[in-house]
Deep mutational scan, measured.
Amino acid sequence: MTEYKLVVVGAGGVGKSALTIQLIQNHFVDEYDPTIEDSYRKQVVIDGETCLLDILDTAGQEEYSAMRDQYMRTGEGFLCVFAINNTKSFEDIHHYREQIKRVKDSEDVPMVLVGNKCDLPSRTVDTKQAQDLARSYGIPFIETSAKTRQGVDDAFYTLVREIRKHKEKMSKDGKKKKKKSKTKCVIM
């Protein structure tokens, strides 16, 4: 069974824990209790493949930012979460993405942009803004509501699919490099 290491990042209060708990335990946590770091595991079937999701729910508070490099190193894919009623959390996505790329030393890291709290009427981040940002990053965008469960499975499952595509691409690139290195030079 394939294991996928997913990391949920975003500013404090955007609903990272609520999304994760909704996926794992099928219930909505409405009281806000700032996370330092929590880890969850769940076995699911995605596109006919049974897999184990190892999900790291991270601290959004700035005082825990020193811990970010460590979990970013171990993560295979990242859910970059903002709240649709919090423009600052949307603007912060850029910083999370840049930090992930720096730590992973790669421009090509599996990510999904997630606009959470889409059940709320007080939207300050337009869907088109988020779609445009995701398009500019070359990553999928999904709106979710941890409260109603809308888009929750889709967000995590899409990230797994992005990781699969990335692994497939990397193995193809690896095979191309191996083929090239088999060419021999004969000096007579």
Rank of each mutant, 00 (worst) to 15 (best):
A11D: 05
Y40T: 15
T20V: 08
K5G: 02
T20E: 13
G10V: 00
V9G: 01
F28H: 09
G60V: 05
E63Q: 06
Y4C: 09
G48N: 08
V9P: 00
Y40A: 13
Y64S: 15
F28I: 14
G48R: 05
I21D: 15
S39W: 03
T20A: 14
Q22C: 02
D38C: 10
C51K: 04
G13D: 12
D38A: 08
I24K: 14
I36Y: 05
G13K: 03
G48I: 01
L53K: 01
A11G: 03
L56H: 15
G10Y: 01
I21C: 15
T2R: 13
T35M: 05
V45G: 11
I36L: 11
Y64I: 12
V14S: 10
E62I: 09
L6I: 12
D30V: 06
T50S: 07
L52P: 13
T2L: 04
V9K: 01
T50E: 07
K16G: 07
E37R: 08
Q25C: 02
E3N: 02
N26W: 02
D38F: 05
P34M: 12
I21S: 15
L23S: 15
Q43C: 09
E62N: 08
G15C: 00
A59M: 07
S39T: 08
L6V: 07
D30P: 13
I24S: 15
E49H: 04
Y4E: 04
Q22I: 00
I36G: 13
T35I: 03
E37V: 11
E3R: 12
Y40F: 10
L23R: 13
K42A: 08
E62W: 02
Y64G: 15
T20F: 10
A11R: 01
E49M: 02
V8A: 01
C51Y: 14
P34E: 14
R41P: 14
I36D: 07
T58A: 10
E62K: 04
Q43S: 09
D33S: 10
K16W: 01
Q61D: 13
F28N: 07
I21L: 15
E63G: 11
K16Q: 01
G10E: 00
K5D: 04
L6A: 01
K16R: 10
I55T: 12
N26V: 02
P34N: 10
E62L: 05
T20Y: 05
A11H: 04
E49I: 03
K42L: 08
K5M: 00
C51E: 08
Y4M: 03
I55E: 13
P34H: 06
K16A: 10
K5R: 11
S39E: 11
L52Q: 15
T35H: 13
D47E: 06
S39I: 05
